[in-house]
Nucleic acid binder design. Structure first.
Lengths: 176, 176
DNA sequence: TTGATCTATATCGGGCCAATATAGACTGCG
DNA sequence: CGCAGTCTATATTGGCCCGATATAGATCAA
């Protein structure tokens, strides 16, 4: 999902500045499904504006930094729906933790334990966020997506708790 | 996990050409955890060579394209372990399908069904691959990583099968 | 025999991230 | 009261990486 499409999707729900789009990608219910940085959001909004898919109004506030509030246009709405009707980009699951675990035999026992602890804590966090998001009123599509995330991260957490002992046994044996 | 580190990890297990590294990233047990393209692998190997972390031997084969076989050096092995000892990059789970589902209310009924079908089939594939990988003899670290993947994708598949009806009800209602 | 597929290396444009710069407003703490 | 830290807000840059493309001989099936 390229950043232009992400911006269009978020503007579908409400007008926003570039900064607010970033916040929604990070904190809103989008956090676990897509990513976008300022370095891509601002150029994306520029290009969307040039292409007539969004419109800008400048809110020149006295004694505050100016805001550029973006709204999606009719053409933008059509373009967004067209993007969802066409083939979706492949999922990208980059999972450095799992990659690292494949090389557990090269690492000292306590490093493995540390990585397992950190990753478990991180997954717990993610799950908490998704549960909070699930508690808020949502459309059915949003509810479905949130539930999908909960299912995936819940399973990961269960696996970590049930199977970490297998790895710790290995490194304990290697250390003998 | 940057491509240089991925290359080092794979070369830890066996010497390989750039082409073979790509194949292992795509087909080996790494497939679901990391990604790398030729456009990043070849430059990465060049830089690793310059930094003395890998060595090359050219196999000039008559009547076959030449091969450049890369081996990891002692310094490379140390650098790889150092990378795994330091803080790991964040997971990156880009999930266009879940993002799209959040906008189910904007899409026609049959498109939702089509996306659910495609994504279910794709997840089934992934799971089959992971089960095949799990059947092969592996180190405990590899076994753990494979199991983690199976847990995650299995949960996703279960969720899709159990909850797709909720979305299909929505769109059916919207169509009334 | 001819087209497809496989091995193998390499490059390029463009997309994107992480870091950084700038700047005024607000908040809390001593 | 001052000042440090945080928050809103926009923007740029270097560098990493992907996807597409080019090249080229080998193998294999129709």
């Amino acid at each position: 999902m390229d950043v232009r499409t992400i911006c269009l999707g978020i503007l579908t729900r409400a007008d926003a500045t570039g900064y607010e789009i970033k916040k929604r990608v990070e904190e809103g219910g989008y956090r676990h499904f897509v990513e976008a940085s300022f370095g891509s959001i601002y150029p994306a909004l520029d290009k969307l504006t040039k292409d007539g898919l969004v419109s800008v109004r400048a809110e020149v506030q006295e004694k505050k930094p100016n805001r550029k509030v973006y709204s999606i246009t009719k053409a933008g709405r059509s373009a967004f729906i067209a993007a969802l009707m066409g083939p979706l980009p492949q999922d990208c699951h980059r999972w450095p933790f799992a990659f690292a675990m494949k090389f557990a035999d090269l690492l000292p026992e306590q490093r493995i334990a540390q990585m397992l602890d950190a990753y478990t804590a991180q997954t717990e966090n993610t799950l908490t966020q998704l549960q909070q998001a699930g508690a808020k009123p949502q459309s059915r599509g949003e509810h479905f997506a949130t539930g999908l995330g909960r299912a995936a991260y819940g399973a990961i957490l269960d696996y970590l708790r049930e199977h970490r002992v297998e790895l710790e046994v290995q490194t304990a044996e290697a250390a003998e």
